[in-house]
Every structure is written in C-alpha cells, then in structure tokens.
Amino acid sequence: MSNPIADPGHGHSPAAWTAVIIMLVGIAIGTGAFFLNVPWLVWSCVVLIAIGLIVGFILSKVGYGVNGPKYTPKEH
C-alpha cells in the first residue's frame, strides 16, 4: 500500500453533473412520452438530450470541467 491509486476525477465536476442531470430529465420525460404515444414530446426530449451534451461541453470549456481553473475538487 505504498502507492495508493489516485482518483482520475472522471465525471466529478459541475460540467459533468449538469450535463447528466439535463440528459436524465430528457430521458425520463421522453420515456413517458413514448409510452403515452406523444411523438412531438419524444422528439423534443431528444433535442433536450442534445442540449445537455452541448451544455456540458460548454461548461467544460469555460472552466468547470475536471481540470478546469474554476473547479476545485472536494476531499473525500
């Protein structure tokens, strides 16, 4: 145990959490809309999922990603 494995920090950032939350909301609403046969809402949720991906990418580039200057990792 002389060299503990360091956490690579994958996904533990405001950019990642924001993107995942937006996409999960889109998937949850889209699944319900698919079940209820509401095609326009299903396609709106597909767009929402794409928006979540774009928002996560933008936040990462602005500095809220794992190695960004505006992100400070929390101690466990």
Rank of each mutant, 00 (worst) to 15 (best):
I21G: 04
Y64N: 07
F35G: 00
S44P: 08
V25H: 01
G63I: 12
K70W: 06
F34E: 10
A33K: 00
N3Q: 15
N67V: 14
V55E: 00
L36R: 06
H76Y: 12
G11Q: 02
P73I: 07
C45Y: 00
K61E: 13
L36I: 04
I51M: 04
P14A: 15
D7M: 02
P8Q: 06
L59R: 02
T72I: 11
F57M: 14
V66Y: 15
V66C: 02
I58T: 11
T18C: 09
N37M: 05
P14H: 15
D7S: 03
L41Q: 09
L53D: 13
S60I: 03
F57W: 11
P14Y: 15
Y71P: 00
G11I: 01
V38L: 14
N37A: 11
A19L: 02
I21M: 06
L59T: 00
L36N: 07
I27E: 01
P14F: 15
K61S: 10
I51T: 09
M23P: 06
P4S: 04
L24K: 00
V62M: 14
H12M: 10
N3T: 15
P8R: 12
G65F: 13
V20T: 15
A28Q: 01
Y71I: 02
V47Q: 03
G32S: 05
I54S: 12
I22M: 03
V38S: 08
A28D: 01
F34G: 12
L53T: 13
Y71M: 13
L48M: 14
V62P: 04
V38M: 10
C45Q: 14
G52V: 06
A15Q: 02
W43F: 13
G9W: 03
H10V: 11
L36S: 07
L48E: 12
P73A: 04
I21H: 01
T18R: 00
A19I: 00
E75L: 11
V25S: 10
W43I: 07
I29Y: 03
I5H: 01
P8V: 05
V46Y: 04
Y64D: 09
I21F: 15
W40V: 14
L48R: 03
L53S: 14
G11E: 06
D7T: 08
I58G: 06
W40R: 11
W43V: 13
Y71N: 12
I51N: 02
G26I: 00
I51W: 07
G26P: 05
I5W: 03
L36V: 05
G63F: 10
I58N: 10
G56A: 05
H10E: 02
N3S: 15
K74D: 08
W40H: 13
I22G: 03
W43K: 04
A19E: 05
M23L: 10
A19K: 00
I54M: 11
H76A: 12
I29A: 12
F35N: 05
I22E: 02
G63L: 09
I27H: 01
L53N: 08
A50C: 12
N3L: 11
I27S: 06
P39Y: 04
F34N: 12
W40C: 04
A16G: 10
I27M: 03
W40T: 13
H10F: 04
H10L: 07
N67D: 15
F57A: 12
